[in-house]
Amino acid sequence: MTARRIIPCLDVKDGRVVKGVRFHGHTDMGDAAELAARYRDQGADELVFYDITASPEGRTLDYGWVRDIARLLDIPFSVAGGIRSVDQAARCLDHGADKVSINSPALERPELIGEMAQRLGGQCVVVGVDSKRAGDDWFVHQYTGDPEASRGAGRRTLDWIVEAQTLGAGEIVLNCMDEDGVRRGYDIPQLAAARACLTVPLVASGGAGAPVHFLDVFEQADVSGALAASVFHTGTLAIPDLKAFLSDAGQEIRL
C-alpha cells in the first residue's frame, strides 16, 4: 500500500510564493526555496511548484531555479507553468524535477500528453485540471493563473480527465475552483466522481482548511494525495500535527 500523500503547493510568482483566494488578489507568502526546505523538514510527502504566471504570459519556467530546488529536496517534487513542448518537459526533468504538470497547454493541444508520456514515461506526466461547478456538472477552466485571462475551456471535467488518462497521463491533480482558498473542505462529490472514472492516481486540490477536511477526502473520495497551500503557508496547519491526526484516525500516513 501507499501512504496518503500530504502535498504543499507553492504558487510561485517571480521567485516568491504567493496565495490568493479563489485565484484572485495574490499576497506574498515568502521565499520559495525557504518554504520548500521547511516543508521537507516537516515531513511533506511531495511538493508542487506552480509558476502561476508563466502560462498566461506565454513563457516557460526558470530551469536554474528547478535545479536549485532539486538540490535542496530529498522528497519528490513536480513543476508546472508554461510547459508546452516535450523538450521543455524533458529539460525540467533533466534539472531534477520528478514530474511535470501541464494544464492549459494540454487543453490547447491534448496530443502533448501522449508525446510526453511516450518520451518521458507516463509516470512523470501529471495533468492538472481547474474545474468549476455549473448546474449539477463540472467544467474545465484554463489560464486560471491570471484573473483577466481565465476562462472556460468548453469541456466537461470528467470527460477531460478520462481523455487525459487515455492519452497517457500518470496522475491527475483536480483543483476544485469553487472551493479554492476558502477553507471549507475539499469538493468530495466532484473528487469521488473523478476517482470513479480513473485508474491512475488522483490528487485533490482546493478547499483544505482543517485536519478533518483531509480525513474526509481520503475516506470519502479515496484520493492518493491531498494538496493544499494557504493553510500550510500561513501556519494554520502544521504538517506534523496534521499527519499525527490522520494516522490516529486510521489513515496510512508516513510519519
Binding site: 500500500m1 501507499t2 501512504a3 500523500r5 510527502d45 522528497i75 519528490p76 507516463g122 509516470q123 500518470g170 496522475e171 480513473l198 485508474t199 491512475v200 492516481p201 488522483l202 492518493s224 494525495g225 508516513r254
Partner: peptide, 30 residues
Amino acid sequence: LPVPHMGWSRLSRLRDDPLLDGVEDGAWAY
C-alpha cells in the same frame, strides 16, 4: 488500487545486506 504505483510504501526486509545497513524494517520509500 491506482496504477502506476506512485507514492510512499514501507520496505519489509527479507535478508541482511550491506546496502540495507541501518535501514529499519518498515522504513518508507518513494
